[in-house]
Write a protein that binds this DNA or RNA. Sequence first.
DNA 1: CGGGGCTTTGAGTAAACTCAAATAGCGTGG
DNA 2: CCACGCTATTTGAGTTTACTCAAAGCCCCG
Lengths: 241, 241
Amino acid sequence: MVECAACPLRRLAAFTRYGPEEIAFIQALKVGEMVVAARGSILREGDTPERLYTLLAGWAFRFKTLPDGRRQILNFLLPGDLVGLQAKIFEEAAHGVDALTDVRLCLFSRDRIWDVFRHQPQIAFDVTWLSAREEGLVDESLLSAGRRTAAESVAALVLQLHRRVSALGLATPAGVPMPLTQAHIADALGLSSVHANRTLRLMRQRKLFTLAGGMLRDVDLAGLRRLARASEGEGPVRPLI
Amino acid sequence: MVECAACPLRRLAAFTRYGPEEIAFIQALKVGEMVVAARGSILREGDTPERLYTLLAGWAFRFKTLPDGRRQILNFLLPGDLVGLQAKIFEEAAHGVDALTDVRLCLFSRDRIWDVFRHQPQIAFDVTWLSAREEGLVDESLLSAGRRTAAESVAALVLQLHRRVSALGLATPAGVPMPLTQAHIADALGLSSVHANRTLRLMRQRKLFTLAGGMLRDVDLAGLRRLARASEGEGPVRPLI
DNA sequence: CGGGGCTTTGAGTAAACTCAAATAGCGTGG
DNA sequence: CCACGCTATTTGAGTTTACTCAAAGCCCCG
């Protein structure tokens, strides 16, 4: 089990620095780790989860489903993201969380969240910060699903994920890891998977990017920004809990 | 100016009870009130707002726009809702907020939010609660825009607003106030206003509800729930700051 | 009584969907 | 090592939902 003080994420420039006292406090909150295999469920819709999680490694996503099986992905979760805060707050999850790849999670005691607010206002503020940031991601997706064309939406999604993955230092010379199937892209943007496929072909033809084997390659960032009409997005640092 | 201890909202069963100490603290945070006329702007995209607001009376909405003018409404704001928290947290608003009706807002000092986290953990927790609740509303809209048909989306939106307005005790024998134009409904659900109009006609023909003159009437809640495949939604009480 | 905004309707179009089938990849066990 | 099965991708063909453009009607307010 990873010691919080030695957490490999915490070394990244993407995360704010905490003092030893705060790290010790987080360490005291941590009750264990959990591993979930790719495609496994981390949190089911309607569940009352025992824990609050931070994603240590791997990809996951939040989603809602309709009774007939239609699924909407709400946002993707990458290392450092908090999982299950709403569920903690409302006692019952209004959304599910599934693992996209094999995933390692850091477990926090559910009851002790309250201690954070009582004793560590800085960390409490950062929890709120992360929650507001996630809402910002959902806002952006809603803009895509509601008002962007399929090509614009795909461009905006790829840009967002490219930015988030790069900030974590996960980009490699071989490309940027992006372990999504076309069905995930479709469900995130409100498209059918057939149309997602045709749109990806278009992106390839326009030389905006290629996405294959879980790797994003040959990205034309400027072209994507022009297409998505995206703003530059969040600043460089954020808290890690 | 309304005294927090005498705040008419606070008397409603929809809000949690605060002790005298907490109310005094909130009162100390309050630096004034602001009135914005219908159609006026409360917060512009890209602004760095000086204040954090609570909506005291009236309707407003959060939105994002694309450079060519396409607009997506992210969620509607009703009395008791917090405005501008993300903007406070990120220094810059990634969305605008416009008044739908004449609106009265309670102003809180921006800098002193930090005091809340340091001295009033209960209120800090409730800020997080409200933020998570708002994210839940956006999640629901994303499900509509992405995966529901136009009729299902309209049903889900009307159900949500009916529930929220009723919880505030604003329903009257003459109907439930709902001061939206068809363009607002279209922009909230990712439809064209022509299609929103045709969908509303369909709802009228199916006797699910009528919406005219800012009033919702003749609502068939059971029929709407069946159509929207909606879950029952949030519990009855929430914090008021 | 004349706008300006909002709503309503018609007609034609386009983006995205469904259904169906073929192809490609990948892991497992014979 | 290859065949099999499963999942994911790709493409074609036809359909539908929702869009655009345009014009007319409404209604409130000044």
